[in-house]
Structures are given as C-alpha cells and as structure tokens.
Write a protein that binds this DNA or RNA. Structure first.
Lengths: 196, 196
DNA sequence: TTTACTGTACCGTCTGGACGGTAATGTCAA
DNA sequence: TTGACATTACCGTCCAGACGGTACAGTAAA
C-alpha cells in the first residue's frame, strides 16, 4: 500500500492533499454515480488514508460543502475576470456569462459531478446554489435591460449545464455552437435596438 | 400493523400497490434527497410491507427502472395526444413539445425526483433517457426545418426541466412566462419566413 | 514541538435482499 | 356445487455487508 507515494514534495509540487481529495471525489462521483460516493473510496482514489481524509474534512458533509463552495467560487472568479476582459461593451455581463458557462461545460473533468453528489445527498445544499444563480440572473437582467432575451439566454445555459452535470450530452458540439450563435445573434439584436 | 388496510376492494378503488409504491418513492426522493432513497422508507410511505414491495420490485434496480420508464412513457403519450390536438399547424411538434414540457414542470408532485434518484444511483440509466431526448430533438428539427431555433427552444426547456428536477426554481412564474413568450415569438418568426 | 498526515482497528447503524409464511382470489375437474 | 390446487399479493423477520465516524499509536518533515 502507498508504495509510490514518496516523491520529494519540492520537485513537481504535488497538488495539496485537500485539492487531490476534492478532485478525486468529483471523479468518483462521475464514475460510480453521485449517490454512491463513499469516504473510503474517495480516500483510496486520492491516495490518502482515511484518517488523512478525515483530517481535512471531519465529516462527509464538510467534504460535500467544499465541493459546492469551490465550484461556486471558481465560477464567480472566472466570471469577474472574463467581464473585466470584455470591458464595458454592450451586454458585456451577459456575454461574459455565456463565455464562462460554455468554458465550464467544456472542462474535461467537470467538478459538477461533485456538486451533483452534494445536492442529491443533502438537498439543503441547493440553497446557496439557488441564491448564487439568482444573483447572477438579476445582475444580467440589470445589465442588458431586456428581460426576455436574458431569461432565454440564462435558460439555454442552464440546459447546457444540466447535460454536463449528468455527463449526458444530447447535443453534438456543432449543435451547441449553432445554438450559441443564435443566442448571440439574439443578444446582438437588442444591442442594435439600443437596449443597452 | 396493517390495521387500516382492510377496506373492501370494490369501494373507492385504492390505487394499485405498484402505483402507490412508485409515487411514494418519488415523494420520498424529494423529501430525503434522491441519494437517500431506501426500500424500507419507500415501503413505509407506500403503506406496504417490505416483503410486499419486494414482491412488486424484486430488486431496487427494478424500482428505479420503473420510475424512469413510467416517466418516459407518460411524457411520450402526452406528447402524442398534444400533437394530435394541435393538428397539422406550423411547427406543431415543437409547440406540442413546449406545451407538454411546461405542463410536466407544473405538476405539483413531480415524478422527476424519482427519475433523479434513479440516475444518481445508477448512472447507466441515463442511456434510455438520452436516447429518448435525442429522438425527440431529431423529430423537432425535422418538423421545424430550422435547427437554430429548435435547439434554443430545446435547451430552454431543458433548463426549465433541470430546475424542476432539483426542486429549485430560480425563476418566478412570470419570468418563465416571459421566456416562453419570447420563445414562441421566435418560433413564429420562422413560421412567417416560410420555414415550415 | 507542531503540523500533517499514515495505518489499523473498531463500533453502531442502516440497507438491500433472502426467506418462509399466509390470506384472498381464481381455475377447473369431479 | 364443491373440493383441490395454483396464483397473486402481500407480511414480518432476519442477516451479511457496507457505511460514516471514532480512536489512537506512529512518523517524517519544518
């Protein structure tokens, strides 16, 4: 057991145990199903003893909360940087949201599986997620000044996200691109109309 | 134990045990979290002994499969009746899909929670669902002849559905209505353009 | 000495499922 | 019409295993 584990921590800085545990949990959730996540299995995949896992996350709930928290924080940070990058263009917030959501969906190892595990095991963890999404939606509506288009864009991204969440793409990449194009065109139309 | 259960089977035909079990499972999934569905709890809520439950569904997997199967069948049947009702109007299939999806989302006791339980406990159960959705999407695309609009509409409904799936509405009813209106207008535009 | 673990052993609880029984409801020949 | 048997639709109990969590002794680096 644990034979390979003794590389010097200075060379190639192995990701922190905490990070390894989190990503192992997300991977496992995708492999065995979000409902069947066990601490033993997470520890094994992360290359950590069970004692070590419990050192970082004293209870399972703590691990699940971290899974959700990390995801939300990352998304929020990405959103801000992208919005800064786009500057003060028309409907910049909405475009940034589209960009980041799409990029999030494209990540090969989607943390969403971990988030899903958290939600289905402790439904009350939806609350922060709901709150987060609501905030974003309100910000987008304020930014575009055109509710209908914003809502449609928001829902489209939610649809895309839900497919990735379950690791069950129904759409091909081309179809996704087609939909995104139509969406951008729609947004462009409200820009021309002086909506922004 | 089982004291109340002896009403004559002729008066007020209690829903079949099978149906009661299925709806109890869906309700429970929403209450305790889709990952925490246990046969004991389902049996108790359905007013059936565990042995009785196992008689109808020899293994847990069978129950979960029934949950998925029933939902898909119901949706399919609703879709057909609604399409027949709309007749051969322009983009009738898409409008029917919108109607049925929306009605499905409005049901107070959404079976989706049961479907979610099935998926997160046995991810391979996504396959029939994916297949089903893919079929519908292809049918819609063929019917409208306008991929972009169809894809956007499909994704919007998926977004709406995913919110109901988690019992986590971010949108208010008015917002949903606004989005649907915009969607219908979009579809109307391809109808005018002779897309159909 | 403290921090960050490893490794092992263990406990109480819950879960899926097997199993043996049983009451009611047909089915059918005599 | 009746008795014999079969099927259906359950009930109630039991169990092996998995799980979350605890406890603790040891260790290696900073």
């Amino acid at each position: 057991m644990g034979a390979v584990r003794k590389l010097p921590p200075t060379a190639l800085p192995r990701p922190s145990a905490r990070a390894r545990i989190l990503s192992a949990a997300a991977d496992l959730a995708r492999d065995v199903g979000p409902a069947n996540l066990s601490l033993d299995a997470v520890a094994a995949r992360a290359g950590v003893s069970k004692g070590g896992l419990l050192y970082h996350f004293p209870a399972k709930l703590d691990l699940l909360e971290a899974l959700v928290g990390d995801h939300l924080e990352t998304f929020d940070r990405d959103l801000e940087t992208q919005q800064a990058l786009l500057g003060a263009g028309p409907a910049a917030a909405l475009h940034a949201y589209l960009d980041v959501s799409l990029a999030d969906c494209r990540k090969q190892t989607p943390p969403p599986a971990g988030v899903l595990a958290a939600i289905v095991q402790h439904p009350e963890m939806l609350k922060p997620i709901k709150h987060f999404k609501r905030q974003i939606l309100d910000r987008l509506k304020a930014d575009t000044g055109h509710d209908a288009t914003t809502l449609v864009a928001f829902l489209v991204m939610e649809g895309l996200r839900s497919m990735k969440l379950f690791d069950a793409d129904v759409l091909s990449d081309e179809e996704t691109a087609t939909a995104m194009e139509a969406l951008r065109a729609m947004i462009g139309r409200i820009e021309e109309a002086g909506g922004v």
